[in-house]
């Protein structure tokens, strides 16, 4: 019962219409080739005249060049996600909150990694995106803490405490894994049983599958042993169930690629996968592209559900990643061809 009260009623018409209007303001696909032909100051200017105006203006006093763009993008992402939380009510609000915990996890990982390598607080804060439940002020105070114990105490009341309770400095991968698992198990539990929500569940499960496939590719390529790989995978996927994950993690590279053919994702990546592939960039870009296409496809099945909102959040994040890829690539003078391969459109 408490669960029902927390979710409240279904107030989708307002938020979905608003999100669709917001989606129409994202950068159109044609802009990216244009951005590729520009220098960084030109890109900053173009971005500063678009939806990012407020962020670029605000930060222009403190930063310049690439830093300015980088910070404006981060701030805009956080601002957009916070806006979604602000303008939604009841059930959509609850589901968006759960989805955005992704950024809490991201921030906690960033802070712990930074602390691990002794990075200064300011540098850590440059990389956080305050889009989740932990606001920028809380994150600042956490990033300024010296000892791991203080950080643990500060996160004592959050659901993430369970993952970091036993952390005492050192190797982070286990903690990061645990955080991911907490995130996805909460997300899966948050979604109810109605028709539209069943589709949302399918979407989240597909997202888990794609994440698992990426992890499998990376760990196989790095030559990790079976048990270590299985530890890194997230249970609860759509096609790759626990048994499949166990089997896949034990297969050697060539059999693993063959094993992938049994799943529907294979048709998406079959073109670029080969036994002697050296870079995973193409596979990951294709999987991201598939996730985006899938989200936008199912967002039309049940317009009055959380799906159009997931679709928008994914697209916004992708837009920011694309702009960042272009400017970073330009900065280190990568050839256009490689930058283009990294873009997900």
């Amino acid at each position: 019962m408490a669960f029902l009260i927390r979710r409240g009623s279904k107030k989708y018409p307002y938020i979905t219409a608003r999100v669709r209007a917001m989606k129409s303001k994202l950068l159109p696909r044609e802009v990216y080739p244009k951005l590729m032909n520009m220098d960084i100051p030109e890109i900053t200017r173009l971005i500063g005249e678009s939806e990012y105006k407020q962020d670029v203006d605000e930060l222009a006093q403190k930063y310049s060049g690439l830093d300015l763009l980088e910070h404006a993008l981060n701030q805009n992402l956080a601002r957009t996600y916070r806006k979604l939380l602000r303008v939604s009510q009841d059930e959509p609000n609850y589901l968006i909150t759960e989805y955005l915990r992704h950024w809490d996890i991201w921030n906690i990982k960033t802070i712990l990694r930074g602390k691990n390598y002794g990075a200064p607080a300011q540098e850590i804060l440059d990389a956080v995106v305050a889009a989740g439940q932990l606001g920028y002020r809380e994150l600042t105070s956490i990033a300024n803490m010296e000892s791991i114990d203080d950080i643990k105490t500060a996160l004592g009341n959050t659901p993430y405490y369970a993952a970091i309770a036993n952390y005492d400095g050192g190797e982070l991968s286990a903690i990061e894994n645990e955080l991911d698992k907490i995130y996805y198990s909460r997300l899966l539990a948050s979604i109810g049983k109605s028709k539209g929500e069943k589709l949302s569940l399918k979407y989240i499960k597909t997202e888990i599958d794609l994440k698992n496939i990426k992890t499998l590719f990376r760990t196989k390529k790095a030559g990790l042993v079976k048990d270590d790989i299985f530890e890194l995978l997230i249970p609860g996927g759509m096609e790759l169930k626990s048994g499949d994950l166990k089997r896949m993690s034990s297969l050697p590279w060539s059999d693993f690629l063959k094993g992938l053919e049994d799943y529907s994702y294979w048709s998406e990546i079959s073109e670029v996968v080969s036994e002697d592939m050296t870079s995973l960039m193409d596979v990951e870009a294709l999987l991201d592209k598939y996730a985006m296409g899938y989200a936008s496809r199912i967002s039309h099945y049940y317009p009055l559900s959380i799906l159009p909102i997931y679709d928008y959040m994914l697209r916004k994040n992708n837009e920011i990643n694309n702009i960042r890829t272009i400017v970073r690539g330009k900065k280190v003078k990568l050839p256009d061809e490689i930058i283009r391969k990294h873009l997900v459109m």
């Binding site: 018409p13 307002y14 938020i15 979905t16 219409a17 608003r18 669709r20 209007a21 303001k25 303008v87």
Partner: peptide
């Protein structure tokens, strides 16, 4: 009820709607 809510939502982002 729903159409009105959706219309206001869309208008909040794009006034020309």
């Amino acid at each position: 009820k729903d159409i009105g809510a959706a219309a206001v939502g869309a208008m909040a982002e794009r006034e020309e709607l």
